[in-house]
Structures are given as structure tokens and as C-alpha cells.
Amino acid sequence: MDAVAAAGEAEGDARVGEFWRGLGLPGLVDVHTHFMPERVMAKVWAYFDAAGPLVGRPWPIAYRYEEDERLAVLREFGVRAFTSMIYPHKPGMARWLNGWAAEFAARTPDCLRTATFFPEDGAADYVRGELAGGARIFKAHVQVGGYDPADEALDAVWGALAEARVPVVVHCGSGPVPAKHTGPEPIARVLARHPRLRLIVAHLGMPEYTDFLDLAERYPGVHLDTTMAFTDFVERAAPFPRAERGRLADLGDRVLFGSDFPNIPYGYAHALEVLARLELGDAWLRGVCYGNGARLFGV
């Protein structure tokens, strides 16, 4: 990174604190950040660098730092609680990722202990084990995993999560590139079976925003995270319908800030400032950026 670019990034990063202080908040809660085993993160970054089939466009990583530096950056931003969004793409991977995430959370007290799962033998057993061990949030990535979330192999998993009332962030929308089991219909079948599930729809369900707003209105446990939504990078390809802003305002107590840090192609401040552009009011912003997440996770 040249000196001019570095100075520009530093200036943008300084605006993060200005943003939440201007709202009178004690900081931020970010429900969608990625910390993974080093070799897994390296493979994820390589996939983004190559603009792989599930990315579909050039995607420079803005915060390509070592783990300790990434943690320091989030803390300097004033992020009081965050996650280690992990996700398997094949059988046998989830247990190992969960073990790593448990150790990471144990040495990183401001990280909400995160876990994941895959449709495989024993999934319900290890999910129950993670719940008993203190997992506070789960991640499911339907696009990368390539599985139907309504697969019978996951029915007991969703049931355990619904009973425990532990939130699960699910990438189930068809952005940035649709896959066989993305879109609202497969996850709607899950919710029909488990209506008490605390499901957080990643990326506001882009690009099927309206359909996922419908699900949130139908099921009181459905939340939406703002990850990458409204940013200039996304709006060019999948703009949020202006006519739906009123519904987003009405669901304000179930909208949560997410960033996708560090895997974003722009500065962190931009992800916050685009929320202010919506003109939904400071009370809405305070809930989205801190209050809703703090209440949901008891932080």
C-alpha cells in the first residue's frame, strides 16, 4: 500500500469512533466478523484474490493483517463484541473449526464464542456439545457449503438451536452469486418447522431483500444483519429497494450491524456511514449499531 492510500485508510478509520460517539454510544457490536485458523483464512483470501465463482468480481481485502493486528484494529474502532464467523464446506470440517473457535474465544474475551455445523452424521450431537460448552452464536453458509438448509440431516440441529434460543447467522440469500440452495424458499422451510428459531439473515438476504423482510415480519425470531448492504460496492450490483426502507425502520429492533471484517473491499467507516444515509433516525442507528446486539447477546 502506498503512502497516499495508507493515509486515506487511516483517515477513514478515524471516522469510526467519531460515528458512534456522535450517537452517544459506548461503542459498537459487530455480529459478522471473520476470525479463522490461519491456513483457512489464507485460503479464503486466495479465493477472493482470484475472484472465484462464488465471488464473481474483483474483491480486494482491505484489512489483510495478521490476527493480532486485526484484533487491535477492531478494538481501536471501539467494537465491544464481535464474532469469529467460521463455516465448513465439506463433511468432517465443522468439529475442527469449532474446536479452534472455542480456543480463540477463550483467549479473546470480547469475541462471542462462535460455532458452526454441516449436514453430516453426528451434527446434532456436536451442536448440542457446543451449546453446553457455551457457544453464543452459530454460523451457517448455505452458498459455500452447497447444502439445502432444510435437509433432514439438519432438522435436529435447527431444533436444538431453537430450543436453546441461541442465534444462528445464515448466509442464505443469493448474493453475491446464486447457488443451488440459496434464496428465501429453502430457509423458509426451516422456519416453518422451527418457528422459534433465532435466525439472523446475513447481508439482509441480498439480493432478495423483500422476501427476507417478509420472513422477518412473519417470524419474530428472525433478525437481519446489515453486512455489506447499502455500500457503494454492493449497491451497484444489488441495490436495496428504496420503497422497503419503511419496513426496515419498522423492524429496527431486529436489525444488527455486521461488517464482514476483515474481508471487505472498502474501509470499515463506510459500512457505518451508509446506514446514516438511509435517514431512518439516530434511535434506529443506535439500536442497529449497538443496542440490539448488546440486548441479544447480553453484553
Rank of each mutant, 00 (worst) to 15 (best):
M1G: 15
E11F: 14
E11H: 14
G12W: 15
E18M: 08
F19N: 06
W20E: 09
R21T: 08
G24Y: 04
P26A: 07
G27A: 11
L28P: 04
D30S: 12
V31D: 10
F35V: 13
K43F: 11
V44C: 06
W45P: 00
D49E: 15
G52K: 04
P53H: 02
V55Q: 05
G56L: 02
P60V: 01
I61W: 04
R64E: 08
E66Q: 12
D68G: 11
L71A: 00
L71V: 08
A72Q: 06
F77T: 00
F77H: 11
R80T: 01
A81E: 06
F82R: 00
S84Y: 04
P88M: 06
H89T: 14
P91R: 14
P91M: 11
G92N: 13
M93F: 13
W96T: 15
A101L: 13
E103W: 06
C111I: 07
R113H: 12
A115W: 02
F118E: 02
E120S: 03
E120H: 07
E120R: 07
G122W: 00
Y126I: 02
G129C: 02
L131R: 01
V144H: 09
D148S: 07
D151Y: 13
E152Q: 13
E152D: 14
A153T: 08
W158Q: 04
G159R: 07
L161V: 09
E163N: 13
P167M: 12
P167D: 12
V168T: 12
K180F: 04
T182L: 08
P184R: 10
P184L: 14
E185I: 07
P186M: 05
R189Y: 06
V190L: 04
R193M: 07
R196H: 14
R198H: 14
L204Q: 05
M206I: 03
Y209D: 04
T210I: 05
F212W: 12
F212L: 14
L213Y: 01
E217S: 11
G221T: 10
D225P: 05
D225M: 07
T226I: 03
T226K: 00
T227I: 04
T227W: 03
F233W: 15
R236A: 15
A237L: 15
A238H: 15
P241D: 06
L251A: 13
D253H: 11
G258M: 02
D260Q: 05
F261W: 03
P265W: 10
P265V: 06
G267A: 09
H270I: 04
E273H: 03
E273K: 01
V274T: 02
A283G: 05
G291W: 08
G291R: 14
G298D: 08
